[in-house]
């Protein structure tokens, strides 16, 4: 065992997710998740979808969790969280259950959010449960071995969107998940990355305070799936924001705001060149992606009341 009394110190520092987990070396998602948990505080109940974060943290009979946590299936996390929230609410009315206010949190990857769990998420958002849904977006089915999802960006190579004579990799555009969440008219939506931890913590706290459903979308670099060095997860988050690939923003009761406005977007190449999944792309395709990213950023800017150039 460790000699630094590490676990006690981590607990004292408010960490709710303990080391000894099986996430890949340099995982950006687990880093994002522990930041999210720390910002949430200990009075939470987490419903976790099947996926990387579930499998790396719960090999029976052990757990990395210091908070109550339930995992059921891949596609039903928002529904499980609905039940947790409704159950607590009904019991509270009848004078039972935990005495303190408990924040109900559902967590899933992009596969369980964009794809298989979209229906249950939509239902939970529409019903207005007082809970926070956190999507850790690593842009593919990484737990099963790097297959494409509807979050995989155009041009990225995965095991099911491989580069071939007739294909440049993923040939579809990434689904705009925060916008889909927005279409439910929920009170709070935010995008975050682990490279901006103060911003992330602020947004998580806001999500906790606002009554009703909140949707938090967290950019979560995957060194294994994206083909990067193990030390660049944070750098990739910064670049994703600074290139406009992943705008940082929020929407409170229908009012949009960019929380980090990038006046001069960095070239997309800076972001892509660190990742093997884009390495095969020709200059033409990269230019095309560059144009799309700029156009998308312009739309986001205009929504946020920022005048486009």
């Amino acid at each position: 065992m460790s000699t630094l009394n590490t676990l006690q110190k981590l607990k004292d520092a408010g960490e709710l997710f303990m080391p000894g987990h099986r996430a890949c070396i340099g995982c950006g998602e687990v880093l994002a998740m522990r930041q999210v948990c720390k910002a949430l505080g200990k009075d939470i109940i987490i419903a976790n979808a099947t996926g990387c974060m579930e499998i790396i943290s719960s090999p029976f009979p052990t757990t990395n969790w210091n908070v109550p946590w339930i995992h059921a299936l891949f596609e039903n996390t928002a529904a499980v969280a609905s039940g947790v929230e409704s159950g607590l609410d009904a019991m509270r009315r009848k004078g039972r259950g935990p005495s303190q206010d408990v924040t109900v949190v559902a967590m899933g990857g992009d596969g369980s959010t964009f794809d298989i769990g979209l229906q249950s998420l939509s239902g939970a958002l529409e019903r207005g449960h007082n809970f926070i849904y956190v999507c850790f977006d690593n842009e593919g089915y990484m737990n099963t071995g790097i297959q494409r999802s509807s979050a995989t960006p155009y041009g990225a190579s995965t095991t099911t969107s491989p580069v071939g004579k007739n294909s440049i990799g993923q040939t579809t555009q990434k689904k705009d998940m925060p916008l889909i969440a927005l279409a439910h008219h929920i009170p709070y939506i935010a995008t975050c990355t682990p490279a901006h931890p103060t911003d992330l913590a602020k947004k998580i706290k806001k999500a906790k305070e606002i009554k009703g459903p909140a949707y938090i979308h967290v950019f979560s670099p995957c060194p294994t799936g994206w083909g990067t060095d193990s030390d660049v997860a944070i750098e990739l988050c910064r670049l994703a924001v600074d290139t406009g690939v992943f705008p940082l923003g929020e929407c409170v009761h229908g009012t949009y705001a960019l929380t980090k406005h990038i006046k001069d977007l960095k070239p997309i190449r800076d972001y892509m060149k660190l990742q093997r999944r884009f390495r095969h792309l020709s200059d033409d395709v990269i230019d095309q992606i560059q144009a799309q990213v700029r156009a998308h950023y312009a739309v986001v800017r205009s929504k946020c009341g920022v005048v486009t150039n």
Partner: peptide, 20 residues
Amino acid sequence: PVGSIVHEPGNASEYQTGDW
């Protein structure tokens, strides 16, 4: 345990990941 519940929080920290 009933329901295969893990009752000891954070007990996976016994697992040494340093040897990776």
